[in-house]
């Protein structure tokens, strides 16, 4: 694999997506939601007005965990199940499948990242102006984790598109994945723990965390916000088991990297054998 075609394909994909009205709509809505949640998010807890970074990040976390996977899956499947004539012309050029996949993924990711970063930036500037810069580092780390989550689901969408090939089928699979990881997985994990006990249950709970990238980002974010105790004894046990906050976050980031790389690598392997 050479970098030059990857760069050219990524640049074209970025241009196409930046000019897409849906990317702009997503950027605007995401920006409004992040800023709005930072402002109104903790009214129920008795806080009003613009929150500081720690509170804002905690409030925005759920928005990120719901919306980012859905947007990444949708944009990925749309792009990778695009028109046949366009794919045929591109793949008939002297480029490798891996270069096309990597280039398109990077271009798509750049467009999602731009939309997300602009939303986080607007909210960040408002928070600094109202509440000061305390907690900015955690907020930036949370932004990076959110971008990581976007890349993971983009990678999953590429695998889905490669397997399904047809747009409607790929969308169906993508929606199922979103439902599974965002809504169903935790219920399933809790259900299984009811059947287990003692150390087996603890080990299962610990391992199940790595089976869902949404949970990986959720837990890593809460550790970064220093609110892992929200999990109660389980959170404390997790931190103890992993060897403290820094070690925990490192391990979780490694898991996220694997989630980002493996689906895409598998998609490349499958695509090499596929016909157009």
């Amino acid at each position: 694999m050479t970098f030059s075609p990857v760069f050219h394909i990524a640049r074209q994909e970025l241009t196409v997506n930046v000019r897409n009205k849906w990317t702009l709509i997503f950027a605007v809505i995401f920006g409004i939601l992040v800023t709005g949640i930072a402002y109104f998010g903790m009214i129920a807890e008795g806080f009003s007005g613009m929150q500081n970074f720690a509170r804002s990040s905690a409030s925005v976390l759920n928005l990120v965990l719901y919306i980012i996977p859905l947007v990444s899956l949708a944009m990925g499947t749309l792009s990778f199940t695009g028109d046949k004539g366009s794919a045929e012309l591109l793949f008939s050029q002297p480029v490798l499948s891996s270069e096309v996949i990597m280039g398109k993924a990077l271009g798509l990711f750049a467009s999602i990242a731009l939309s997300m970063a602009s939303g986080f930036m607007v909210a960040g500037i408002m928070i600094i102006s109202k509440s000061g810069p305390q907690g900015l580092t955690s907020y930036l780390a949370f932004t990076v984790l959110s971008l990581g989550l976007a890349f993971v689901f983009l990678s999953l969408s590429i695998l889905v598109a490669t397997l399904a090939r047809r747009k409607s089928k790929a969308f169906g699979f993508a929606l199922f994945l979103w439902f599974f990881f965002v809504l169903f997985y935790d219920i399933l994990a809790i259900g299984i723990t009811l059947l287990l006990s003692g150390s087996t249950m603890n080990l299962f709970l610990f391992l199940s965390l790595f089976g869902n990238p949404v949970d990986v980002v959720r837990v890593a974010s809460l550790i970064i916000f220093d609110t892992a105790t929200i999990f109660g004894p389980a959170g404390a046990a997790l931190l103890r088991f992993l060897g403290g906050s820094a070690m925990s976050v490192t391990l979780l980031v490694c898991a996220l990297l694997l989630w980002a790389i493996l689906p895409m690598a598998l998609a490349v392997k499958i695509m090499r054998r596929q016909d157009f």
């Binding site: 074209q12 028109d83 366009s86």
Partner: peptide, 12 residues
């Protein structure tokens, strides 16, 4: 190679 039905992104 020119495919049977060539398609380009509409916003380029």
């Amino acid at each position: 190679y020119l495919p049977q039905r060539v398609v380009f992104p509409e916003n380029l």
